[in-house]
Design a protein around this nucleic acid. Sequence first.
DNA 1: ATCACTTTGTGAAGTTCTTAACAAATTATT
DNA 2: AATAATTTGTTAAGAACTTCACAAAGTGAT
Lengths: 212, 212
Amino acid sequence: MTVKKVPKATLQRYPLYLKALRRLKKNGVQRIMSKELSSFVDIESTTIRRDFSFLGNLGKQGYGYDVDRLIEIFNAQLGVDFDEKIILVGAGNLGRALMNYNKWDHVVGEIACAFDMDESKAGVQFGVQIYPMTMLEEKIPEGCHIAILTISNNIQETVDRLVACGITGLVDFTHEHFLVPKGVAVKVVDVVSSIQELVFITNSMDSKAKKQ
Amino acid sequence: MTVKKVPKATLQRYPLYLKALRRLKKNGVQRIMSKELSSFVDIESTTIRRDFSFLGNLGKQGYGYDVDRLIEIFNAQLGVDFDEKIILVGAGNLGRALMNYNKWDHVVGEIACAFDMDESKAGVQFGVQIYPMTMLEEKIPEGCHIAILTISNNIQETVDRLVACGITGLVDFTHEHFLVPKGVAVKVVDVVSSIQELVFITNSMDSKAKKQ
DNA sequence: ATCACTTTGTGAAGTTCTTAACAAATTATT
DNA sequence: AATAATTTGTTAAGAACTTCACAAAGTGAT
């Protein structure tokens, strides 16, 4: 079963489904209907069915979906590739919080190692080896192509070096804008942006409420 | 100038624009054309113009946009409401990292106070007052409606309490799925989900490359 | 001032995503 | 075994979003 062209919008919902399914499994749910899942994740049942359909015929008419089977398939599709090496660039407060996160839930590969400008930070923290930034090219794991960026200085320069090392996916925790060449995907994770969006959303909900 | 109905997709790009504009300003750029900005943020110039148009006639034909003016307007629109009180729920590693973040860039209101299950954490950290979770209803600031969630236990229960206290916007750092009533907006911020998306995106880019 | 040039803001076309509606498939019941 | 009741997967309609294309409005040089 090879994956058809999955729409971007669908792609963004997959992690959400997986999270919800894991929760359901924990609650002892073994089978679920699209309609039931719908009220759980607040996405139309028909959207859910279409989203799932890109990965094959996962359900059975008149029965629904097997929770275990779904989890298995999502795990496979979402790259529970534990060989997937991820590096952490920046071992400041946020970086340390990420290293200490024991909740990666065995869903993606763990952080292989970390790098930091501050040479005095070199060593092992929370079980993760930290190298000085100068050793990036030397110590970056073979075949690694995802980096988590939690630095706040020399961002563009660092990104350029990472890209030169073969990084093609960046989880961006910085608060700055930087440029990447085509072919490199960036996923921005930013509290401030999130709050801004929320403020805007809740404001427009408020004004809508007032109009009524 | 009152805001027309802004499409969701546009909304998600506003923080990105603001970030880029701040960067441009720092680089000494005083005026910018949509086409120029386009290559900077990797969004079509016409999309940029339409996005901007929801907030009024911000540009001048034959001239472009004034960077300062844009920043000002985005600041205003994205709720640089410094009275906007934000609470932090959960003062663990991640929570502390957020409290210590000095990079909120004067863009959104600061964290007003924090709450944690662990009563021994009560006190002041990084200049933020931490209260025990039991005092939530008592100590939550007047008119506060945004909360950052970095807890890992009793999530649903805590969310319910927050909603009862008038919270209408949640920045969700937990790795669990929870339910909120209509009218409450949730913005999920999740490294794992981000990595999953990245893995998927970069994988499909790879297979596309192979086909060619 | 006039004219050539540039760039915005926006109708209209095109694309992508969502939802309604229903045939096909399966379960459950009699 | 046949029938009723579900629920999936998908076709087609609708909504949301993006992009094209160009009139309108400005700039800047002569």
